Amino acid sequence: MNRHQRTLMRPVSCTGIGLHSGRTVNLCLRPAESDTGVMFKRSDLPASPLIPADVNHVVSTDLSTTVGMDGVTISTVEHLLSALSGLGVDNVLVEVDAPEIPIMDGSAAPFVFLMRGAGFTSQGRPRQYYRVKREVEVSENGKHIKVAPSKKLKVDFTIEFDHPLIHRQKMGFVLDEKAYDKDISRARTFGFLRDMRYLHENGLALGGSLDNAVVLDNYQVLNEDGLRFPDEFVRHKVLDFIGDLGMVGRPIVGAFTAHKSGHALNNKLFRKFLADPTAWELVTPGPEDIPQYVEEPLPLFDRVAATA
């Protein structure tokens, strides 16, 4: 885990499709000062209102995680937040000209590539984190998630679906920047053909397609390129969880165990955890524990490709 807070070296932009609207969305990630956290900015609205990434500003978990404040919302934030958390980026201004983050290819990999093109810089301020002191758990309708004390941020996630290609999948993961990039970031969101038809017919998920999701009928994957991992489904659930964890504002160093959890239950656990001061302590590493860290951006050719 990074000891210093860090941000991007320079602004970086991309354009994609909104999952809900099906319309073009422009996104720009900008460096931000220490202790800013992740701030969303609606550049399409008068006065460009800001919304902080915070568990208490989650206003909806239907189909995606939506943050909002004073009647202004931004949806589908979880994949971008997952990339930020996975790469250890603490402070960034997210400018978007629509009420949603572009879905890209349905994973966090395009955002990882984008940010690596910008490069990262240490900000000299210690990166505080929550150390778990005792177990906290929430359960609901056969689903549950808990966090327990641990020296590392660990995730043990299990999913179950009545489908021949999924059934029961389980994955254990220790959050590390290289492991996140290699094992988690490329896992795409997934859905079932019958559900996509229903959503489209009711004016929902208009931007959803085989270009940004793994789609299954009753027996098989419909995407021509198939799966990126045999267990891509549970890997994406871990990706989503890391994105939801990014709403906490600081890393939680603990062992998470989840069974069939999703955005709603994840958020309930984080709120319950933060509301109980006996469950955690806020740790600030001393200066002697903080190594200097600056990562160079990609070469110019790759940087151009990242912003194309």
Rank of each mutant, 00 (worst) to 15 (best):
L175C: 05
V132T: 15
L206H: 09
L216F: 15
D183I: 08
I159F: 04
S185G: 08
E177I: 05
L216M: 11
K170W: 11
R127D: 02
D156I: 01
A205Q: 06
T158D: 09
K152Y: 12
H167R: 14
Y180T: 01
S209A: 02
G142D: 03
F173P: 13
S122K: 04
K178H: 13
D181F: 14
L204S: 05
K143E: 12
D156C: 07
V155F: 15
K151Q: 14
E177F: 13
L210V: 06
K154S: 11
V214A: 02
G172A: 07
H144S: 12
P149W: 02
G203V: 01
Q128H: 10
R188M: 06
S139T: 13
D176R: 14
F190N: 02
S150D: 10
R194F: 12
H163K: 05
D162Y: 12
A118H: 01
L216D: 06
I184E: 07
R125M: 05
L210T: 10
L210G: 04
N202M: 00
V215M: 02
M196C: 10
D181R: 14
R131D: 03
A148V: 12
E137Y: 14
Y129F: 14
D162Q: 13
G172Y: 11
V138F: 15
E140I: 14
K143A: 13
L153D: 10
V132A: 00
V215H: 01
A148H: 13
D156E: 10
D162I: 08
G119K: 04
I159P: 12
D162N: 13
N212Y: 06
G124A: 01
R197K: 14
S209C: 04
R131L: 04
R134S: 06
P164N: 04
F190M: 03
D162A: 07
R197M: 09
S139F: 15
R134G: 04
R168V: 08
D183W: 01
L193G: 03
I166L: 10
R134F: 01
G207F: 07
K170I: 05
R197F: 11
H200Y: 07
F190E: 03
P164A: 00
G203H: 10
N202Q: 04
S139R: 14
D162E: 12
N141G: 10
I145P: 15
M171H: 13
R131E: 08
R127T: 00
T189K: 08
Y129M: 00
G203F: 11
R134V: 08
K152D: 14
F173H: 06
M196N: 07
S122I: 03
I145D: 11
P164Y: 02
N212H: 06
V155D: 11
G208S: 05
Y130N: 02
L199W: 15
F190R: 03
E135H: 10
L199K: 11
N202I: 00
R134E: 06
K152A: 13
E135W: 07
V155S: 09
D183C: 09
V147A: 04
D195Y: 15
R168W: 09
F161S: 05
K178G: 04
K151I: 11
L206F: 09
M196K: 11
F157I: 00
